[in-house]
Design a protein around this nucleic acid. Structure first.
Length: 493
RNA sequence: GGGCUGGUAGCUCAGGUGGAUAGAGCAACUGACUUUUAAUCAGUAGGUCGCGGGUUCGAGUCCCGCCCGGCUCACCA
């Protein structure tokens, strides 16, 4: 309560003092509401004025005051709990002298409890006719302006608790997020998948190509990495006998921040024995329609001014065909690699000495085709060179039985038939090490235990990673990943 | 890191070419009001104009540097 605080804050602290002096507790915790607001609305919303007046039952609600209309003896308070909003009515003449005084101390943002019969006002608004009220929590900070809300993007993320109160859309996004994750669990568990948790702190950060965060364990005096993927541990569980296993968990990548990248993000990975990547294509064509129907009730959804059509089957194209068509190159030219590398050099894309035709193809794809694919599209048959954990295509060992699901120009899922030949896996790791030695900054580290694990024997298997945050962006028409993460990473204040 | 763009009251925003005490709405404070719901009416108060320099008789406004954002490119799942 120093002099430099805004006047309004000082006033509120003084108010709290006065409330205490008058014998009220500004942080009272013994009010137990009997009813949720949604429950009351479900019962009474459809009833007419006369029908409601016949109901003698008293309802008791608690919530945050989101609106105050005090007009002399008649006082209306808009209340919001986790389930909805309802209005309470208080007549000053029916309150004790102390409560009349306390009523005048209330501000938007406070929590109160109130009980009474229901009625409809003359404007037909369902209202709780409260004969008394209880102050539950006094708020100090005023809430943002009532009809513009909190607009300042930085303030919205830094003080998400205010954003959630002031902007209904923000709250809605996180409800959709929670519902989507819940439905994904149901979808997988209905198909016999088991959810297990694998280490976040890892000695070897594998399962993807990305720069990790480093941390240190004091007792063991070793450096550990925050996981960049769950892949290798989940496959270890498949080897151990969990033939259908998944994890929804946080992954961490020490890379740039953008509207599609947050340093920590949530990924679903699942692995399915006796399946191949074609089976996963079918599974995705069930999963996405399931989610969309449950959450939005339709398969064509708006996204940033465009329309995304999730009606299965989704489009399919091989990476080579896509690039060959886009740049008017023959597949033979792509396999030689010179044409794609030249194209990349012309575009100013950095190439490493170790890069082969596969890296070049993948880079060209990302430069040209990827961002143009709006409707969900399976891009299949990735080069082995960029797929160190994927099974080789039987007909063409230069390619992996792999696909990425691209939506709105962004990768939403990545899946493949899993490599389970330990000798091949060791060679792939060694190739990665060679590329690293030649200067490639992003390679997969050698994981000897994982090779040993494959020697124990992993059944034929397919697995997939799916970015939950990006999925929620699509479901909620959000332009930035920060909108769908409650507390996105920001520079400290 | 580059480009563009922003930071003015608790919140949302105004403040051509530099000019006198920096404005509005909401929120707040005082009062009126027995069915309001963007309540209304009368009155009051609230500001290191992101920070630091500079130019000028005079800077919210112009110049330089810095801090913190947003979009975008680069980088990257």
């Amino acid at each position: 309560m120093s002099e430099d605080k805004p006047e309004i804050i000082t006033q509120r602290y003084e108010k709290i003092q006065k409330i205490r002096e008058r014998g009220f507790d500004p942080y009272f915790n013994q009010f137990k509401p009997k009813n949720s607001i949604a429950e009351i609305r479900t019962r009474l919303d459809s009833l007419a004025k006369e029908e409601i007046e016949k109901i003698e039952e008293e309802f008791s609600v608690a919530g945050r005051i989101i609106r105050l209309n005090f007009m002399g003896k008649s006082n209306f308070l808009g209340l919001r709990d986790r389930t909805g909003e309802i209005q309470a009515y208080l007549n000053r003449n029916e309150l004790s002298e102390d409560k009349q005084w306390l009523l005048k101390q209330l501000d938007v943002g406070d929590f109160i409890g109130a009980a009474g019969r229901a009625f409809r006002t003359k404007t037909n608004e369902l209202t709780i006719y409260a004969k008394d009220f209880t102050l539950i929590t006094k708020a100090i900070q005023p809430l943002p302006e009532k009809w513009h809300g909190l607009k300042d993007v930085e303030a919205r993320y830094r003080q998400r608790y205010v954003d959630l109160i002031a902007n209904p859309k923000a709250k809605e996004i996180f409800k959709v997020r929670a519902a989507a994750i819940s439905l994904i669990r149901k979808f997988l568990e209905d198909r016999g998948f088991l959810e297990l948790e694998t280490p976040i702190l890892q000695a070897v950060p594998g399962g993807a190509l990305a720069r990790p965060f480093v941390t240190h364990h004091n007792a063991l005096d070793i450096n550990l990495y925050l996981r960049i993927a769950t892949e290798l541990h989940l496959k270890r569980l498949v080897v151990g006998g969990f033939e259908r296993v998944y994890e929804i968990g946080r992954c961490f990548r020490n890379e740039g921040i953008s509207t599609w990248h947050n340093p920590e993000y949530t990924m679903l990975e699942f692995y399915m024995a006796y399946a191949d990547y074609e089976d996963l294509i079918k599974l995705n064509e069930e999963l996405f329609p399931f989610l969309l129907n449950q959450l939005l009730g339709k398969l064509k959804i708006p996204y940033q001014g465009a329309e995304l059509d999730f009606t299965p089957p989704f489009a399919r194209i091989t990476m080579e065909d896509a690039v060959a068509k886009k740049l008017d190159m023959s597949k033979e030219e792509i396999r030689k690699g010179d044409a794609t590398k030249n194209w990349l050099r012309q575009k100013g894309v950095k190439l490493f000495e170790s890069d082969g035709w596969g890296k070049a193809l993948a880079a060209v794809f990302e430069e040209t085709v990827e961002h143009e694919l709006m409707n969900p599209t399976f891009v299949t048959q990735f080069p082995i060179e960029v797929s160190p954990l994927s099974r080789r295509n039987e007909a063409d060992p230069e390619l992996a039985d792999r696909f990425e699901l691209i939506v709105a120009g962004k990768e939403v899922a990545n899946a493949f038939s899993e490599l389970n030949d330990p000798a091949d896996q060791r060679r792939r790791f060694e190739d990665q090490a060679k590329a690293k030695a030649k200067g490639d900054e992003e390679t997969h580290p050698i994981d000897d235990d994982f090779v040993r694990c494959l020697e124990i024997g992993m059944p034929a298997c397919a697995g997939q990673g799916l970015g939950i945050d990006r999925l929620v962006m699509l479901l909620t028409d959000s332009a930035s990943i920060r909108e769908v993460i409650p507390f996105p990473l920001l520079r400290p204040e």
